[in-house]
């Protein structure tokens, strides 16, 4: 520290600058905290809005009927019924069907692009698949209505072909780019050293991919699946157009189904504001919210476990 004079009058100036910097750091910190709190606040506001709007209907109709009954007929002149079980099952069926198609395909595609394909192929294929994400949902639904529907009708003798499997296929197409793209990023970011270690032990590329690369990328892959699931559960227009919209309990993927989102979209414009029917649609939204919340929570817990098992980092 030669050349520094402790009694230098400038040392007082140094003190002032540090105070200013501390203030600035604090201000930035507060700003980020405020942003985080705002996001939580919005979430709580939506949650409480759904609950208070749904409350009149929840109060009127016994809780058992909501979740146990498969009968959804709020406008019946004889007896109004508010069972949303069929809608919940339809939503889960279409979403899970979509994931069954999209997850293996998406991860395989990601692994191919990240680990196998030459750079040239990667540069072409990845953007092309990502463009899929930009197709408006109404266009995808239209495709289901006029192309996929007739095809399915012919292949399975399934009415007009507007049914659960149609919706699943379309949602899979819509979830695929997300799953593929996010998984690919995760796989690419696995350090080359880990792959080298595996290869140097005499592992084949396949063994390295399955036992080292994919496990190391697992948190990103799970995140991609959750994003895809979120897209599938929440998607409205596509399933509304392609699923046949029969609000009854589906017995197979070839039955026409109506999801929770489609029900809200179809009926909200036609109800009397303030009626039990009106409020019951908020109850559906409330349950939908709980479902996506549960999906996120479970995936978070899984991720935590995975990270713990993999250790640190």
């Amino acid at each position: 520290m030669e050349g520094v004079n402790v009694d230098n009058p400038q040392s007082a100036g140094i003190g002032r600058v540090r105070a200013w910097r501390r203030f600035r750091e604090k201000a930035i910190e507060t700003f980020f905290l405020a942003n985080g709190l705002f996001a939580v606040l919005v979430l709580l506001a939506i949650f409480s809005m759904l609950f208070t709007e749904g409350w009149p209907a929840l109060k009127r109709v016994p809780f058992g009927e909501w979740v146990m009954s498969t009968e959804w007929d709020p406008t019946s002149p004889v007896r109004e019924s508010y069972g949303i079980l069929a809608l919940i099952v339809s939503t889960l069926m279409v979403s899970i069907g979509a994931l069954i198609l999209a997850v293996p395909l998406g991860i395989a595609c990601a692994a191919y692009i990240a680990d196998v394909a030459p750079a040239r192929v990667r540069e072409i294929v990845k953007p092309v698949i990502e463009i899929l994400a930009g197709i408006p949902s109404v266009v995808v639904g239209f495709f289901g209505l006029v192309v996929l529907g007739p095809l399915l009708a012919k292949a399975f003798h399934a009415g007009n072909g507007l049914n659960g499997v149609n919706g699943s296929i379309l949602l899979a197409v819509m979830a695929l780019p997300t799953i593929m793209s996010v998984s690919e990023d995760a796989i690419v970011s696995v350090p080359q050293e880990l792959k080298n270690a595996s290869l140097a032990l005499g592992a084949t590329r396949w063994q390295t991919l399955m036992r080292v690369t994919l496990p190391a990328a697992l948190s990103g892959i799970v995140a991609s699946v959750m994003l895809g699931m979120g897209r599938a559960i929440g998607e409205t227009m596509t399933v509304l157009m392609a699923c046949g919209n029969a609000p009854a309990m589906p017995h197979s993927f070839l039955d026409p189904v109506r999801t929770m989102t489609a029900t809200i979209a179809i009926e909200l414009g036609e109800t009397v504001q303030g009626s039990t029917h009106f409020h019951s649609l908020f109850v559906i939204a409330f349950f939908l919210f709980l479902m996506t919340f549960a999906v996120n929570l479970v995936s978070d817990i899984i991720l935590q476990r995975v990270r713990k098992r993999m250790g640190g980092a």
Binding site: P191, L194, N196, L201, G202, T204, V212, P215
Partner: peptide
């Protein structure tokens, strides 16, 4: 088979994000 006969240790230690046991067992299992 060549790489099984000719092992390698790298400059930067690169254990797998697995348990100590699984790291050593990896080569045997594959």
């Amino acid at each position: 088979d060549l790489r099984r006969k000719v092992g390698m240790v790298f400059q930067k230690s690169n254990p797998f994000p697995k348990s100590i046991f699984d790291n050593v067992a990896y080569g045997l299992r594959i």
